[in-house]
């Protein structure tokens, strides 16, 4: 395997990660790239009224996965997404919600289980068995009060317009129904967008 891998430029030549990133960033635009994005952004998001208000038109959430469940939280409750860390359990705190404390860049944070709060199965999903996924520790909070919880995967920031919001079905199952603010269409599936304030409130109550 001495020939350079087409999907992996620079690998064969022993290039560093930085050099590979450089190559990827500096590669010319693929054919049709500009045209496709031009078409994409020419579409009017939601109703035409909304496109005149700079802020009301799109919202942004961070989409992450716990077990089999894809969930979304508004970006403004997010403080940090960190690599997973070992947590230290606390004496006499053996309930499902509070796992213990974690050290995030020198700051000790309470580590909770969002899965336990929402009642979703925290078992790692087998759906992406062929795909490499990366577990992450997510830090959320407000006004300096921060908590951390582990997730199985973070997709990233997703922006959505009003046309992608679907009302929560009345027959929503056990999985965090009361915390779900809306359903968002994402990549051919529906993601439960959680109410950030309600989740933080519930975590505060659970920790105390």
């Amino acid at each position: 395997m001495s020939a350079p891998d087409k999907d992996n430029p620079g690998r064969a030549a022993g290039a560093s990660v930085e050099e590979i990133a450089e190559l990827l960033l500096d590669r010319p635009l693929p054919p049709g790239y500009r045209e496709e994005w031009t078409r994409h952004f020419a579409q009017i998001a939601g109703d035409s009224e909304a496109s005149h208000t700079p802020d009301g038109e799109e919202s942004a959430v961070v989409i992450f996965r716990i077990g089999e469940e894809w969930l979304a939280l508004p970006v403004d409750v997010f403080e940090e997404v960190a690599p997973p860390r070992t947590h230290h359990s606390l004496p006499h705190r053996r309930e499902a919600l509070v796992w213990g404390i974690v050290n995030v860049r020198g700051e000790l944070l309470v580590c909770v289980s969002l899965a336990a709060l929402l009642g979703v199965e925290a078992k790692a999903g087998e759906r992406n068995a062929g795909l490499k996924t990366f577990a992450r520790l997510v830090v959320v909070g407000r006004e300096g009060a921060r908590v951390a919880f582990p997730v199985d995967e973070v997709h990233g920031i997703h922006r959505y317009g009003r046309q992608d919001v679907v009302a929560v079905p009345a027959t929503v199952g056990r999985s965090g129904a009361s915390f779900t603010a809306a359903m968002i269409r994402w990549d051919k599936r529906l993601v439960a967008k959680l109410d950030g304030t309600m989740v933080l409130d519930a975590l505060d109550r659970g920790i105390a």
Binding site: T38, F41, A42, Q43, I44, A45, S48, S51, H52, E57
Partner: peptide, 13 residues
Amino acid sequence: PAGVVGAINYRGA
């Protein structure tokens, strides 16, 4: 004037 490329269509505007 110099510097201006043109106009892009962003969400219809």
